[in-house]
């Protein structure tokens, strides 16, 4: 049992490493296509973290929706979209601003981490339900029916809206 736990822990560290390596490439990449690749790798690592948080269903959805759909949409946006500026200076910040942004982020990290570590978290005394997909599906169709319907309406609206907005741009380009 202990050996299994150690393997799970090693995988956990591996997933964290994958997440932040991908994130580093996504943020620091010279070309925007490399940034999308970094985003995909990072989101795969986050899927592993969901697995460790006890929800294999969410890990699968993460791979399906984020890595499968969102990254493809962004890649298509790059391919059919405008050509990026040739010189790198127009695409990323100057050195001084980058230093300031880094310093601000480090400060935010320090403040938030101190808060997180110092706070006392109290777990719920009574737990209802479990982490199985069966329970998730049942509550999605009973107790949380409204959110289920809402997300489908939001997705439908977004698809129609995206089509209309893209069409407006096309008509303006032609006229």
């Amino acid at each position: 049992m202990f050996a299994y736990k150690c393997i799970a822990e090693a995988l956990f560290v591996f997933f964290i490493a994958v997440t932040f390596t991908g994130g580093y490439f996504a943020v620091r990449a010279k070309y925007i296509m490399h940034a999308v690749m970094g985003l995909a790798v990072s989101l795969l690592g986050i899927a592993g973290l969901y697995f460790h948080l006890g929800s294999p269903f969410l890990a699968m959805m993460q791979v399906l929706i984020y890595v499968g759909a969102v990254c493809i949409i962004i890649a298509f946006g790059i391919m059919v979209g405008p050509k990026p500026q040739a010189d790198e200076e127009k695409r990323v910040l100057g050195k001084r601003n980058a230093l300031l942004a880094g310093a601000a982020c480090l400060l935010g990290f320090g403040l938030l981490t101190v808060t997180v570590v110092q706070a006392t978290w109290v777990p719920a005394t009574v737990k209802t339900g479990d982490m199985t997909v069966r329970f998730l599906g049942e509550s999605l169709l009973n107790q949380f029916c409204l959110s289920f319907e809402l997300i489908s309406v939001i997705l439908l609206t977004a698809i129609i809206g995206a089509l209309i907005i893209a069409n407006i741009g096309k008509e303006e380009a032609e006229s």
Binding site: A69, I73, F135, S147, T157, A158, I159
Partner: peptide, 25 residues
């Protein structure tokens, strides 16, 4: 209730997909 967080995370995923489609157009 362990279903709440999972449903919220699924909701965020749906919002992210809708947002990506809208922003690209």
């Amino acid at each position: 209730n362990p279903a709440v967080g999972q449903i919220f995370a699924l909701f965020i995923m749906g919002i992210a997909a809708a947002e990506a489609a809208i922003v690209v157009s």
